[in-house]
Write a protein that binds this DNA or RNA. Sequence first.
DNA 1: CATGAATGAGTCTTCATTCAT
DNA 2: AATGAATGAAGACTCATTCAT
Lengths: 199, 199, 199, 199
Amino acid sequence: MCPKVTGQYKTEIKEKIIQAAIESFAQTGFDRTKMEDIAKRLDLSKGTIYLYFASKEDLFLAICEHYLKFLKEQQLSTIFTRKEDVVLYAEHFYENFRKLERGNDRVMLEMVVESTRNQKLRKGMYEHRLKVYDNVVEHLSKQIERGFIKKDIDVNGLASAFVALYDGLAASRMLGISEAQSKKAWVAMVRAVMAGIGG
Amino acid sequence: MCPKVTGQYKTEIKEKIIQAAIESFAQTGFDRTKMEDIAKRLDLSKGTIYLYFASKEDLFLAICEHYLKFLKEQQLSTIFTRKEDVVLYAEHFYENFRKLERGNDRVMLEMVVESTRNQKLRKGMYEHRLKVYDNVVEHLSKQIERGFIKKDIDVNGLASAFVALYDGLAASRMLGISEAQSKKAWVAMVRAVMAGIGG
Amino acid sequence: MCPKVTGQYKTEIKEKIIQAAIESFAQTGFDRTKMEDIAKRLDLSKGTIYLYFASKEDLFLAICEHYLKFLKEQQLSTIFTRKEDVVLYAEHFYENFRKLERGNDRVMLEMVVESTRNQKLRKGMYEHRLKVYDNVVEHLSKQIERGFIKKDIDVNGLASAFVALYDGLAASRMLGISEAQSKKAWVAMVRAVMAGIGG
Amino acid sequence: MCPKVTGQYKTEIKEKIIQAAIESFAQTGFDRTKMEDIAKRLDLSKGTIYLYFASKEDLFLAICEHYLKFLKEQQLSTIFTRKEDVVLYAEHFYENFRKLERGNDRVMLEMVVESTRNQKLRKGMYEHRLKVYDNVVEHLSKQIERGFIKKDIDVNGLASAFVALYDGLAASRMLGISEAQSKKAWVAMVRAVMAGIGG
DNA sequence: CATGAATGAGTCTTCATTCAT
DNA sequence: AATGAATGAAGACTCATTCAT
């Protein structure tokens, strides 16, 4: 009677490999990361990775799915009762999401770039984006219902813009903009949108 | 016995190669673009490219500089006299910039990603970003002077946010968000910021 | 603490593995057959095969010996009493041998090819060939004694030729020549040799 | 004006590579031959071979075509006028064909084995075999017309058998049967077929 | 006895770069 | 100046073999 490797174990290893790959890809980029590099991070051999992922691309796709699954689970909480909380919440939201992907801005960008070529990935990321977007739309709508936000705004346009703003800040950080400045920009925009800056 | 490539002619060829490389990189990405591909676009041989650029990386850097130079030349025009024009201008600005880089979102993103590794490139892109940012700050400040925008806003934060928003929309488009939706988001955000959406 | 694999049981398993390997090698060829493939045919694990055979080559050699032993056991029966039976017998002989190796022409060819490199294998196959050849010589001689065949023929040459003919037909079948055509060729040759075709 | 590499040159190199590959494959077999080995025979680098052949398999297929073309060009000459010449001719024919493929029996066998998997190759070899077969049929028919061979023989069966015999002798030689014995077998069979051995 | 996860040497293949012409 | 044949370092992937359980 030999101890069988449970599915559990397999899943754990896969998860570890994915984590190591995320680190490698984040550091060196997909194309310049060698399978060997990823293996070394885990004190594994090249071959072992191939026991769990059929190819480098396959591994990358698994990372993408991993992220998508992870991100889709995130929900925009909407628990606040005063108009002033809207801005406060914006900060929390930003910080929250930042934590989820800390250090992996680059992998996210690579995924965006890669999605240009990979139909399946593109679909996945597009759907994720849609979901995030829907969340934002719903969130904005609720605030309208509550009377925290005016009725005659372009909810769809604004939702798109907020998602893009968040992504754009990731690019900014990659170029060296500080985390603080990045957050400051987010807050300033949310605040401005809520209050208006027109003189 | 080969006469050195010099002067006007040399510059022209270099420019052509850069253009071809931009197209290739935009289509296939830096790592997956072969020197041969670029050469073929120009009916040149691989070897010839090396007469003008020392390496593939060198060529990429030249593209970056090319873009930076190009982008730095762009100025935020500030010619409008009525408060209402601010939003109108936002549209023009967006369209203008879009034209400048049409189809090359990807190269821009690659540059951002690449800048993570390349000190020189990173510095260049950072400086460019700073310049764009300065322009936006300056622009906002002028509107404050004119009384089109309130005095007590976070100019720096907002400027950062607008630059990020623009970049983020590029990422959105790569994922399949339409050009129209992208523009709509931009306008909605500008409009909201100007007027405020607080109920 | 593992008891050694021994005796009857061990032999049985070895036999099973050899059979599975023959099938695999016949289908995919030696080099392209994976140990895993063989293991799967038996619902065994790769590791188990190594309990019985030291290496892939070792397994192949065992197959060769298996075949050689098997083939050496075959005898050319010589029970026929009339001259006309010679041709009839030729057919029986052919069919008999065909059954023994049905579907494994390829392994036989691989063995021939492999014997080019493997001294031990080559010796074994050469010896087997000699034995078959001797059988044929003996057989022909008997027919001479009986007066079924002329005395002044090149027994050795003919014997070699018949062995080669048999092998050559195997190659033919691998190229798509039908079993029927193959047999027809054998019979035609035997008949012609017996009767002569000279006008 | 740079010297263009003419198609002529390219063809020459290809031919050289094919020759080197034949030698390598004949010596080590397809699977165990490294591209590097082939390259070294020509004092070339691995990469160069890939300029002329897309892959190892491609190179092998080119060899096959090379052989097929070569073999198809061979014709069975039929110039002899006396019945006795038939046997004499058989020897010449054998020697002639032996020269054409000297040392490459193994590649031929590999081709046969490989054809099991490769549809295209199989078709080519089958067609070649058919052509050789047709030649033999035609040749036999001519001898019948001339009255050198009886009318009531199974021409098709005999033709198949002669082709197979030739191939089978190749296998024999690989196992260590001498060239002389091989030829002797051929001659004995031809002679027997012509004269009959029935007592 | 049996297992199958892990290993890493071995190969094919790619492609940036060089250089003789 | 331009070419494109040649190079060879680099890296993805395979699979025979080992060994802890």
